[in-house]
Design a protein around this nucleic acid. Sequence first.
DNA 1: CAAGTTATTGAAAGTCGTTTTCAAAAGACC
DNA 2: GGTCTTTTGAAAACGACTTTCAATAACTTG
Lengths: 145, 145
Amino acid sequence: MILEKKKTFNAFAARQGLRSTRQRDIILDVFLATHEHLSVEELYLKVKASQPGIGQATVYRTLKLFVEAGLAREMMLPDGQTRYEHQLVGEHHDHLICTGCNAIIEFEDEQIEQLQRDIAKRHGFSLTAHKMQLFGLCPACSSKA
Amino acid sequence: MILEKKKTFNAFAARQGLRSTRQRDIILDVFLATHEHLSVEELYLKVKASQPGIGQATVYRTLKLFVEAGLAREMMLPDGQTRYEHQLVGEHHDHLICTGCNAIIEFEDEQIEQLQRDIAKRHGFSLTAHKMQLFGLCPACSSKA
DNA sequence: CAAGTTATTGAAAGTCGTTTTCAAAAGACC
DNA sequence: GGTCTTTTGAAAACGACTTTCAATAACTTG
């Protein structure tokens, strides 16, 4: 699966005439090795561990490439940092977020998606994307409160 | 309706021991007089028209008060600016956004809300809020493209 | 494989929305 | 009116992100 994603990126890079660099390889490795919703800063710190000389700007630039290549997705939480998560082709999930401990649970609901398409249709829109976030307290945090 | 909202704010101010100032009155008037999804900058410009001496910081501060008072709601679009919209008590709507012309259409769907509650329940969450944004092209923009 | 071309990099400066600081001004309460 | 405290405006600070730019590294061509 990781290899597949690397191939996806290489194909994208070739298509765009991008050069293959040590930095991009490392950032891709680190990104693929994690399964959290990482901010650029967090990713930068992880990357620096295996390659101290690397610059923040490069991490920012490379993550945008991953999004273009279709293997990452940006997500904006109210904390003011852009986070990136893995994007599997055709997959699209939404988030249930605990406002107590910031835990994020992913989910997908075909019924909701269908209703979303209905709404768009009703307004004559051609739907291209959606974002849905549910906020609340996870079981642990609600018992604490 | 505008009077009602003013009362809401005054009640909130009294409860919090806030002083009533000319600036806050003006900002509230301007905010209530518009029905778009205004950014702070846009609101600031409108406010300055009726009160040139007013500072941006005051507008920022006052909008946060409106949110606390429950009569405004923050919304973050991908354009990097926080926008504010009216919040009627108990009301909660979602947005259909045209990525061509940035038009925003509001909607509400009880079926989706119910499904959202189901999902939260399934994960043991106590739901407090949600955000849903659908992105696409409006009829005008899709015929242009 | 050396030389030339062009993309990429890291560091630092720049942006931009928003927040904080701080002294002056204005409300509230005697 | 005098005192105490909140609020204000201007400017500085902040933080996430982007851009700039000279140096470096990756392809390309001869």
